[in-house]
Write a protein that binds this DNA or RNA. Structure first.
Lengths: 334, 334
DNA sequence: CAGCGTGATGTAAACGTTTACATGCAGAAC
DNA sequence: GTTCTGCATGTAAACGTTTACATCACGCTG
């Protein structure tokens, strides 16, 4: 029942083409006519219908964002980074989350189809064939922390392995040789890469290698708490613990306290992500810093670039570096 | 360049109407024709264009979600609750965030127009006239934690005032009479209501009333840290601190520790929201529990109900109750 | 004065669907 | 053998825009 371009045209005594021209500044329109059209439009409270516009122009000015299950501060930051950057370029964000298996992702991909000009996908469950089968080849896609082979798609990854390597080396330099890890969610690519960094650095540093030192978890505070209790019951006990993310580290800290041990005096503890709260807990958490906000910004920038080039640009795979945020929980004293 | 219903029709040797009927199960189609159409569609990898569909059907199957600046775990939870519930009803979520003044909100409202069948708005900067001027009267809207007079819109609010009242009463029952508050972001309705709860309970409980005990902040860990330092420098010092949310409480905890005081022995500390991390910090944080996820679920449920009734239903204003999560930081020992 | 460019506007065909209505055809009822 | 009923399908008009092309008036050039 909303007012259309036709009603504005008839009230202003012009054709619909002229109204369109006024609203898009696409062709010169005489000053008097322009004023009449504008007047008619405001009187009728006319707002152009985006659907008709999109259908005609074959673009939607929206970017889709496919996320896994949301938790913690991490995704707030990603979404914030994406949305702000998108807005600056006059794009909108279509967010869809909680896709935890291939079927759900395929459904989500099909849903997005036609609704968006480009897509950012952050999902551990995606692979190249799923993408190729469910997406038109002309749709720009940026993969965020996905594990997809080849260079057919733009991708941005965090240097998970490198970050953990650095961190383990740091612990080694503190003199630790028996270092445990609280693993992240199974089949999650971040979790797998962080574990790989741990194993590589442990092996290279000639520290103790033992399956007993690797405990499963799933990125939440609760699972960090449980996993740490398991690790603390090992004999001999590790003298340092690497948590696969900060939330798990916070859960672990609680478990360590409960068992009567002190951090970092009796046991060192480190995390990954550097979420804001990491600096404020006691002891402050040594962790691997990731520029989360920057991740979202980079992804949007890249996908918009692709949209403007009609996906004809050279695809680019990049890895975002990480750096250590050294605080107290590892035994550093600054 | 994507394949349309017309190409499927011609390949299957039928009219476009029949193809549409097959895809929508809207009218009976003979088994043989149906099979031919399906075959042609899969061969061509046909996917119906949602824009054409929406234009014709006059619905988009999307719900808009307007949020203020995102921070912390809170909004992740809200978005998660909304998205999951929306998906169950085959709706999508169009998220737009970071609207911190009236102009940005109006722009966002206009952007959403035509793109969504219903709208959830969470913004401290909204008022009834802004809504009426920028939205068609037929568009279902649910206001989340907004401060809009009258009963023209559906709304869901958290019982901010009641939650803080309960909490202050609890502190009074611990024997505290000099209780400070770290205030939330200025002009934010949640912040204002929580402050009101504090003042009312303090007055009613005959505790110390003083402007010195109210310190400004803005809902982040950093501002909680700063505000707590200010409060600790008061003479006499408060024996209990109410933070306007958990993030501020965490910042405050860090400041209190630095000053050499113990929580809860020397000073009690409480928060608001009950974000997951609250249970895992040391001492565990006594806070006002809000069913964040439930907030999103309720909002989506209500807006979808409105969409299905073409916004002709009786509007409903509801207040979500809160309850205390008693842990260690207030001096409780369980 | 013929011819021509130019600026302002209108006309109508896209864009990809859904759907009311029309058509055709087979079998049943009379 | 009509007429009626009902099913399967086709036709064409929406839905609300943008835009290529056509039209027309006007002033300028040669």
């Amino acid at each position: 029942m909303s007012v259309t371009i036709r009603e504005v045209a008839s009230r202003a005594g012009v054709s619909i083409a002229t109204v369109s021209r006024v609203f898009n500044n696409s062709d010169p329109v005489e000053e008097g006519t322009r004023a009449r059209v504008k007047k008619a439009a405001t009187e009728l409270r006319y707002v152009p219908n985006v659907l008709g516009r999109s259908l005609s122009m074959r673009r939607t000015d929206s970017i889709g964002l496919l996320l896994p299950d949301l938790f913690g501060e991490f995704f707030s930051e990603v979404i914030r980074g994406c949305d702000q950057t998108a807005q600056q370029s006059n794009f909108h964000l279509l967010v869809s989350s909680s896709h935890n298996n291939r079927q759900e992702i395929e459904a989500a991909l099909r849903m997005m189809r036609g609704r968006v000009d480009g897509l950012i996908i952050m999902s551990p469950h995606i692979d190249a064939s799923t993408l190729n089968e469910n997406l038109p080849r002309t749709l720009p896609v940026v993969l965020l922390n996905c594990h997809v082979d080849g260079n057919a798609f733009d991708s941005i990854n965090i240097d998970n392995r490198g970050g953990v390597c650095q961190m383990v080396n740091h612990l080694l330099s503190h003199g630790h040789t028996r270092i445990g890890i609280l693993k992240g969610t199974e089949h999650n690519i971040d979790a797998a890469e962080r574990l790989r960094g741990y194993r590589d650095a442990i092996a290279e540093g000639s520290a103790v290698v033992s399956p007993d030192l690797e405990v499963p978890g799933e990125f939440s505070e609760a699972s960090g708490y449980d996993a740490a209790r398991t690790l603390l019951s090992r004999n001999p006990r590790p003298t340092a613990i690497v948590a696969s993310n900060d939330s798990m580290a916070i859960g672990a800290l609680s478990a360590i306290r409960e068992s009567g041990l002190r951090v970092p005096e009796d046991i060192a503890l480190v995390g990954f992500d550097d979420i804001p709260v990491a600096a404020y807990i006691t002891p402050s958490l040594t962790t691997v810093n990731v520029d989360i906000d920057g991740l979202g910004v980079a992804a949007i920038t890249q996908v918009i670039h692709a949209v403007k080039n009609r996906n004809g640009h050279a695809k680019q795979q990049s890895v975002l570096p990480t750096r250590l945020s050294l605080r107290h929980s590892c035994g550093c004293t600054n």
